[in-house]
Design a protein around this nucleic acid. Structure first.
Length: 192
DNA sequence: CGCCAGATTGACT
DNA sequence: GTCAATCTGGCGG
């Protein structure tokens, strides 16, 4: 009996600069298991967050979120804001605070509203219970490489919704993908 | 302890 | 266009 070769992303993948990880997560497959049902979706929009020198990052605050951001590559960080759960993957080396926010997904084998960071967590039933879980161990949530190579263009812009952004572009999305969040398509905040 | 702000969304004037 | 919902941590009394 032959199993499909699992191509779950490894610790090495996440243990790099969060900007690099954010960019490379585009097109990868997020797998969520709910009661033996496997929901697969493609990651189409991400944002990178850094340590204390990033004014938009929760690492600027003392507390559990900052500590979680230092827990090492592959840890899941769930952050509640404005009545929404936002999911992040911790990146970089142990002790460094950095993470990638998942902003939008394209559902592949199910119906769901996933064009936005708060919406996708609702659709996939991701909440604070996932906080501090590990993508490398979890049997209900992980990320795989895409089997079929698909060509797409990566677009970048400044981050959405943050009051104090850095001067570099840290939001990445698949150009033309209809599941990218509205704000991202409009690029309201983007300066040319 | 109370009140404010924030990486959001949806409902309503 | 405005506003409120919920969680976490900063800050003032």
């Amino acid at each position: 009996m032959k199993f499909k070769k699992r191509v779950k992303l490894s610790n090495k993948f996440y243990a790099r600069d969060s900007k690099v990880v954010a960019k490379e997560l585009l097109g990868k497959i997020l797998v969520r298991v709910i009661n033996d049902k496997i929901l697969k979706s493609k990651i189409v929009e991400t944002e990178a967050y850094y340590d204390e020198k990033d004014p938009a990052s929760r690492a600027c605050l003392n507390g559990d979120l900052r500590e979680t951001m230092k827990m090492g590559a592959g840890i899941i960080l769930v952050y509640g804001v404005h009545n929404n759960w936002l999911i992040n993957f911790v990146t970089g080396n142990l002790g460094e605070a950095s993470a990638v926010l998942i902003r939008a997904l394209e559902p592949l084998n199910f119906e769901g509203s996933t064009k936005g960071p708060g919406l996708l967590t609702k659709s996939l039933k991701i909440d604070k219970n996932f906080h501090k879980n590990n993508l490398l161990d979890s049997n209900s949530l992980w990320v795989e490489n895409c089997k079929n190579k698909t060509n797409f263009e990566i677009a970048e812009s400044f981050r959405v919704g943050v009051k104090k952004d850095l001067s570099i572009k840290l939001r990445f999305y698949i150009k033309g993908n209809k599941w990218v969040s509205k704000k991202c398509i409009k690029d309201k905040n983007q300066k040319i």
